[in-house]
Every structure is written in C-alpha cells, then in structure tokens.
C-alpha cells in the first residue's frame, strides 16, 4: 500500500525509535540520538567513498564509533538530573553539526550527495529484527528490571544495590549503536546527507515517535515510528487530496503538533496503551530528578 521508499523509511525510523526507547526505558531523556545517527551516516559515507571499505565493515564502524562517543559523552553527562540531560545532549548535536560543516571530508554545509546505494531491504529487515530482539529480551531480564527500577525511582534503585551509573551508560551506549546503524543504513539508501539532517528537528522527530507510540514497552516506539512515517502518505492518498492540500508542508507539521499534544495530554502512555493492560499506566516518561530527602 505504501511505496518502497516509505517502507524503507518506516524501518529506519523504527530503528531510531527503538534507539530512544533504550534510554527512556532507563529513565533518561536523551536527545542525542540524532547526533549519533549523524556520526554513523557521515562516518559511513566517508568510509565508503574515500576509503573504499566493504559495506559490512562500514556498518561495523558506524555502530562502534557512536558507542565510543557515547561513553565519552555519557560519563560526565549522565549524572545530570531531569531535563538537563536533554539540554546537554541537544548541545552535543549542535557541536557535531558545526564540526561536520567545517570538516573538509564531510562536504561542508552542502553535505555529501552521490553515496552509492548499498542498503538492501534485507539489511533493513535484519537490523530491525536485531533491534526488536534486543529490546524484547530486555523486558524481564536482570538488566531490564534494573532499568525499570531506575526509571521508577533512581534513589531507591541505588539503595537496592543497582549501579545506576553503569546501567544508564549501557542504555546510552546501546542507544547510540542503534542510532549509528540507522544513520549508516539511511545514508546508503537515500544517497544524500547534509549536516542539517541530524539537528534539533530530527531529534524531536525521534522523540515524537516514542511519545506518540508510548514508551512503556518496545512496541510503542516502533508503532509510533511506523504510524507517523505513514501519516503524510495517508494524507496524500486519493481520498483526502481534494479536501486539503497536504503537499504544502505546513499541514503535516500542524498535524504532528496536534497529535503529539493530544497524546501527551490524554494518552500519557502512548497509542499502545489503548491495547495493553489498564493498570500499567502511567509509566513515567523518564525519571524525575532523584531526591535525597529519602524520607
């Protein structure tokens, strides 16, 4: 029912949504996913074009390097409370953008076009399967319980022997891996990348997938990504074409805003909560600042 490129984009966006799910599952509102995606995309493009690496090696590099950056950035910033982590990670994205604009290899503000198409559908299917498997096996695992504890109450988690710093870092690093993977696959699919593709707008889009779908389980973000990717297509379909002109762009923006607002106001656990057990809501979106006055 959807064109090929829409289906491919759904898979990429689902990967990104699962990437942010990993940090949200651990109570961390990180907005660094777009930046990690950009690192994966640019590194991949340069390795393919300038170094002639085989695609599998490019993918490995585009997954591992964001993980290393995540360790470096995560160690100091994961101690930040509440929205301050979101702010710090947004800043990371901006620094990355400026660096990319100024490096010679990355083609400046114009970006890199003419990246060879190397991503095939089976790459996407495999990547998505791996990501879904990872997030599915998380629930019920020792680490998954630790994540849930941190998300619910970080202070209590610490007094129960959970090394919260370690688990938050693991979540951040795994999240970076998935984002890097999405970045490199997308770059080798749609061929052109620019620094602006990995900024605030992309970061907010990824967050929107997770919030609209619901971040209480891994299915929510994936569902959110698929639905929101399909939405502009659905609106362009024949039925509606005569009613409103969804080519203009502002309507999509408007609708995204309205959907996000309605979901956050009326469905705090996202669209999936319509289908899940009632009492599971409301799961906090991310952990509120830890409190010391542990009375």
């Amino acid at each position: 029912m959807f064109g090929e490129s829409v289906r491919q984009l759904m898979a990429i966006n689902a990967l990104l949504a699962l990437s942010i799910y990993l940090t949200l599952a651990c109570g961390q509102l990180s907005l660094a996913n777009a930046a990690f995606m950009g690192i994966g995309a640019y590194l991949g493009a340069v390795l393919t074009l300038n170094a002639g690496w085989p695609f599998w090696a490019v993918i490995v590099a585009a997954v591992i390097v964001p993980m290393l950056v995540a360790v470096l950035v995560g160690l100091p910033s994961l101690r930040l409370r509440g929205v301050f982590l979101a702010i710090a990670t947004l800043g990371l994205g901006e620094v990355l953008r400026v660096v990319i604009v100024n490096l010679r290899a990355t083609g400046g503000a114009e970006g890199i076009s003419s990246i060879p198409v190397k991503t095939h559908d089976w790459h996407l299917a495999l990547a998505l399967a791996v990501a879904l498997y990872l997030t599915w096996r998380l629930r019920g695992s020792r680490m998954g319980y630790a994540f849930e504890a941190i998300r619910e109450d970080e202070t209590v988690a610490r007094t129960m022997g959970i090394n919260t710093t370690r688990y938050k870092l693991i979540a951040f690093v795994l999240s970076a891996a998935l984002a890097g993977l999405a970045g490199v696959l997308k770059a080798h699919l749609f061929r052109a990348i620019t620094p602006g593709d990995y900024g605030f707008v992309q970061a907010v889009d990824i967050l929107t997938f997770a919030v609209v779908g619901g971040s209480a389980s891994f299915l929510g973000p994936a569902l959110g990504a698929v639905l929101l990717t399909a939405l502009p297509e659905l609106l362009r379909s024949n039925v509606l074409r005569d009613v409103v002109n969804f080519e203009a762009g502002w309507q999509t923006l408007f609708l995204n805003g309205v959907i996000l607002l309605l979901v956050i106001l009326f469905l705090p656990n996202g669209l999936v909560s319509l289908f899940t057990r009632q009492w599971r809501r409301p799961t906090p979106l991310a952990s509120e600042p830890a409190t010391v006055e542990a009375t």
Partner: peptide
C-alpha cells in the same frame, strides 16, 4: 499534577511550538 510533569511539559511545549510554526508557515 503529573509525576513526570517536567518531561511531559517540555514535550507538550514542543508540540505547541510545532503548531504555532505550522500556522505561521500557512
């Protein structure tokens, strides 16, 4: 009154910003 009011508030403000921006574009 929500327990995660800081986060949900930040996100709903993003939503309103999108709506305002869309209206301005129109």
């Amino acid at each position: 009154k929500r327990p995660d009011t800081h986060f949900s508030g930040m996100i709903s403000s993003i939503a309103v910003a999108l709506i305002f921006e869309a209206l301005a574009t129109w």
